[in-house]
Amino acid sequence: MKARVTVTLKSGVLDPQGKAIEGALASLGIDGFASVRQGKVFDIDLDINDNAAAEAALKAACEKLLANTVVENYRVELVG
């Protein structure tokens, strides 16, 4: 089973990297981007066949390591 975990900054948390990317896009002349927020994607191969068990393991991984829930949100998707 494969999974994708997406970690993003909570709204309201300042994202200097996103701001830098915004600036770079503007300097490339690519217009129309009101704002950019950057985050992280983890593509994971699981040795688990049970959906509920996989979701529990992924939640534990997010809470304990992949995300800092003080400033970040996470989303877990099982992808077959």
């Binding site: 300042l14 200097p16 990297q17 701001k19 800092n68 003080v70």
Partner: peptide, 16 residues
Amino acid sequence: CEAGLLPGVLMRNVNR
């Protein structure tokens, strides 16, 4: 902070 010994988090400097 990451270990939970102290609250909060240290983020990227505001001037990058």
